[in-house]
Amino acid sequence: MLDIPVTTVEQGVSDAEVAAANAQPGTTPPKRFGFFFWCCLGWLALIALVAIFAGMLHLDPPNAPYYTPIAVNAPPSFAHWLGTDDSSRDVLSRLVYGARVSLVIGLLGTAIGIGIGGSLGMFSAYVRGKIDAGLSFVMYIFLAFPAIIAVLCILEFWGHTESHIVVILGLFSVPFIYRVTRAATLACATKEYVTAARSQGATARRVLAKDIFPNVIPALIAYTVFTFGGIITTEGALGFLGQSVQIPISSWGNMIGEASGDLNATLVFILAPASALFLTLVALNYAGEQIRLRFDTSEQKL
């Protein structure tokens, strides 16, 4: 037995009419974000606050060794909640300051990606025609190109600074955001009110700003969140390969990479940054998915 909702296919018009007739205003229960969604936001808020106010937490300096020979690879203790690493640095402190690096790279990279990819996507879908085809083709090539190769080369030759990582990861997220924004814009640009606005001679900028942008925002928010997660993951991978910010500066990725290469490291050193990263990615992806589902009418009926 296939357990799927009953569907009867009607002629388009009549179905909408029937649905409208049956949908008494106000009686449909509004779709709410569930408990887990708020947990995710809570976690994100927590790590954001911790990263912002890291300086006020009275932690040991994250990058300076603690110069006590006994503290090398020390297990968790009251003084060092997560222990110390092979250079006697406080792991909790490195985790907190690492959050700063990961989050800042994620945030700024996303800003670049959304800024460029989002506006190009909307523009492309709005003008259609040759420009659209050309842009889409270029983006398609970038999507096909294994970004990691270019990223590794460029970082090696430019230097592994935070700003380079931000710019490069941001730029390489452009094609992805371009594609989804373009699709979302196309979907709403064909709606009646937009066509009407265009036919009444509204300027392109006005139509984009007044009619299209507000309707693309929900999709854009969701994909902003996904991109954020994607960039943090990529930064983590680079860090793991030792190709992100350089030791002694910590990011979650390079902490995992460093600890996994050190046979004396205890499990906590891997587990702590790995869990932080995993929970953050769960929070981002879940929240993004909920936002997308909530605003995407085409999937709501599933």
Binding site: T233, G236, A237, F240, I256, A274, F278, L281, V282, N285
Partner: peptide, 14 residues
Amino acid sequence: SFALFCLPSFIIVL
């Protein structure tokens, strides 16, 4: 699958 999706390959590999 959602959890696996959120688990970066460098954590899985370890």
